[in-house]
């Protein structure tokens, strides 16, 4: 049952519920698709309502990349400690929205127990990555013992704008689990939400909006992956693609388009259980996939 929705009552004093217009989250603002298009999503929890979700266009994708590219300099330059605090703040905001997120997952077809389990896992994942923000650097970096009088070291840096296709399921944990390592590493991203349950991604966006995350670091789009992703895969300002559960034919097309600007492409289809495996899903390997290693040399001399 939708939160506070009492519009089925026939009594005169029954309150009419206020429904939410779901919007995508781009550049820190909640927006409809510039195309004016929508898709309808059913409420599986019993209330029977049908809700309208924006259907992103190619132009929405381009706007989102612009927002992500604009946010990159500021986000990547922040102190790692500060990024960690913002991610922790995200966990706080998610915790405060536990009921709403769980209700949304139920409306997307999960039973109450599964919904609750997924929400707490997503919150805990944010806590785990908040802790990574100022630690992965010391695991990946190295002081290189070169022959000769040089001080040489290698450090991780963000890749840039990453386009993420969130897995269909788990819609919330998959979304959070995919984007957290990307932004923890200082990247910004454009995320295509699960087509199976896009509504929950937009509720998640409301938590992002209140967690001190600068606008444009995460841009959430809803719509048809096969329609929007090919344009993003060919976009010259996108550095990497992170594809989860994208069907093989589409993934191949995207990889081919990505080659035009030598994008880094990661494509995986994890089983649902793997998303819930905290140990594996918070391995630093997830962050390592979205950093560039930079080696710096300097002579040593009196």
């Amino acid at each position: 049952m939708a939160l506070g929705d009492q519009d089925s009552g026939g009594e005169a004093r029954a309150r009419v519920g206020v429904r939410k217009a779901y919007k995508m989250f781009v550049g820190g603002a909640f927006v409809r698709s510039e195309s004016g298009r929508y898709t309808q999503v059913r409420d599986h929890s019993g209330a029977g309502a049908v809700e309208n979700i924006p259907r992103a266009s190619r132009k929405d994708g381009r706007d989102a990349v612009l927002a992500a590219a604009g946010a990159l300099g500021g986000w990547s330059a922040r102190a790692a400690y500060n990024r960690g605090q913002i991610l922790y703040r995200l966990a706080e905001m998610l915790e405060a929205r536990r009921a709403e997120l769980a209700a949304s997952l139920e409306r997307g077809g999960l039973d109450a127990g599964a919904a609750e389990r997924e929400v707490v896992s997503a919150i805990d994942r944010a806590v785990a990555y908040a802790g990574w923000a100022d630690k992965y650097q010391s695991l990946f970096s190295s002081l290189n013992p070169v022959s000769g009088p040089h001080f040489t070291f290698t450090v991780p840096e963000p890749m840039g704008v990453v386009v993420i296709a969130a897995p269909p399921r788990p819609a919330l944990l998959g979304l959070a689990g995919a984007l957290l390592p990307v932004i923890t590493a200082g990247n910004t991203c454009v995320v295509l939400a699960s087509e199976a349950d896009p509504r929950t991604a937009l509720v998640f966006g409301e938590a992002l909006a209140t967690s001190d995350l600068p606008g444009g670091v995460v841009n959430l789009l809803t719509g048809q992956l096969a329609e929007v992703l090919p344009h993003l895969a060919a976009h010259m300002e996108v550095a990497a693609l992170d594809l989860h559960g994208v069907d093989a034919a589409l993934a191949k097309r995207l990889e081919e388009a990505a080659a035009a600007s030598v994008k880094r492409v990661r494509a995986r289809s994890l089983g649902e259980a793997e998303w819930f495996d905290d140990g594996a899903a918070t391995s630093p390997r997830w962050i390592e996939r979205f950093v560039e290693m930079k080696t710096i040399w300097h002579p040593v001399g009196p």
Partner: peptide, 9 residues
């Protein structure tokens, strides 16, 4: 400058 212990790419 290049060295086997120093990542390049």
């Amino acid at each position: 400058k290049l060295d086997p212990s120093s990542p390049f790419g």
